[in-house]
Amino acid sequence: MATLADLRSACRLVIKVGSALLVERGAPRADWLATLAAEIAELRQHAEVIVVSSGAIALGAARLRLAKGGRGSLADAQASASVGQVELARLWSDALGLHGITAAQMLVTLGDLEDRRRYLNASATLARLLEAGAVPVVNENDSVATEEIRFGDNDRLAARVAQAAGADAVLLLSDVDGLYDRDPREAGAVLLERVDGVTPEIMAMASGASSSGLGSGGMRAKLQAAQIAERAGIALVIANGTHPSPLTRALDQGIGTLFLPQADASARKAWLGGRLAPAGVLSVDAGCMNALDQGASVLAAGIIEVEGDFARGDLVAVHGPKGERLGQGLVEYTASECRAILGLRQEQQADRLGYAPRAAVIHRDHMVRA
């Protein structure tokens, strides 16, 4: 895909809708949703569509008359989501039903896409729903999610859903036209039409704030979503959804930012790279960092610090000596074992462990680079 118009050739597309687009002052924007549903119906003439929809907390908070849009506390957010999820499912069912499309509600938690077996189950459910002709409407299950164990925004969720569904592209509908080289409110700010890989320089252009106050994301979350998508070989677009026909405006007029897919990792490596909740951190020295650049594994001799309390097989992040994030992978030892052997060469490790050491702390086959 080289331009936004190429998204019309996608065989499977994930569309993310933010809270501020769907809900205004606690009430659904029914006319706007009707227009979007019509555009989705048009897309479905040649593509399968998955919707990732925010809005449950905002809708539920209005019904329960809770302050701060239901985000005053975790308990308020969970209660609001419980009520709002019913309303959100009805809105999508009614809007898509006018075009003869069946909507299917699918609520997921972070754990559903972090655990490999549950991830494959979610992938199979999405595939079967699409095969049956339904439009899955996915949302994080905020009624049970906690502050510590949650996606926190539906931008990254959309990228993970696209990965699980084997989608060609993700379209994030936002309240801005796309990624600007600086705050778009500043004079001279330039909209970037295409980004070939999310670099530290690109990430520095982002703000973490949600301008509407309803959502939980921001441009930084969208760029993190782009990183997840690009690693899996999936294109991602940020476009303005506030207009009456947002898909037509973005795709036909070419207004938005297209993030090009990068190396198409294996399914398992893409899943591993997209995981969001490492259980700990291994910091390594400069020599190990250089070896990782050549495709090596993480060895105990190069580890200088261990953070967290993790078990064998858990996901851990790997940082360089200055705290720079190098990647993440599945660790072969517990945290206490890592602390016991850090800095030691393989021939020195058996005395500390009480058994023959493994080949690596994180094998290169079980690691993805940042």
Rank of each mutant, 00 (worst) to 15 (best):
D6H: 13
S9R: 11
L13I: 09
K16M: 00
K16V: 02
G18M: 05
D31I: 04
L33S: 02
A38T: 09
V49E: 10
I57E: 12
L59E: 02
R65Y: 05
S73M: 02
A77I: 05
G84T: 01
A89H: 08
R90D: 08
L98N: 08
G100W: 09
I101T: 04
T102L: 01
G111S: 14
L113K: 06
D115G: 01
R118Y: 05
S123E: 07
S123P: 00
S123Y: 08
L130D: 09
E131D: 13
A132Q: 13
G133D: 04
V135N: 10
V137G: 07
E140N: 09
A164V: 01
A165I: 02
A165T: 03
L171C: 08
V176L: 01
V176T: 07
L179M: 14
D183R: 07
L192S: 09
R194W: 11
R194L: 12
V198Y: 13
T199Q: 08
P200S: 06
I202V: 15
A204D: 03
A204Q: 04
M205N: 14
S211P: 00
S216Q: 03
G218N: 10
G218C: 14
M219N: 11
A232P: 05
G233F: 07
A235L: 04
V237W: 03
T242M: 14
L247G: 09
L251R: 12
Q253Y: 13
A263G: 03
R268W: 11
A270Y: 15
G273C: 10
A279H: 12
V281P: 03
S283C: 01
V298M: 01
I303D: 10
I304N: 00
V306C: 03
G308H: 11
D309V: 09
A311P: 02
V316Y: 03
G327D: 14
Y333M: 02
A340E: 14
I341D: 01
R352F: 12
R352I: 07
G354S: 04
P357R: 08
V361G: 06
V368N: 14
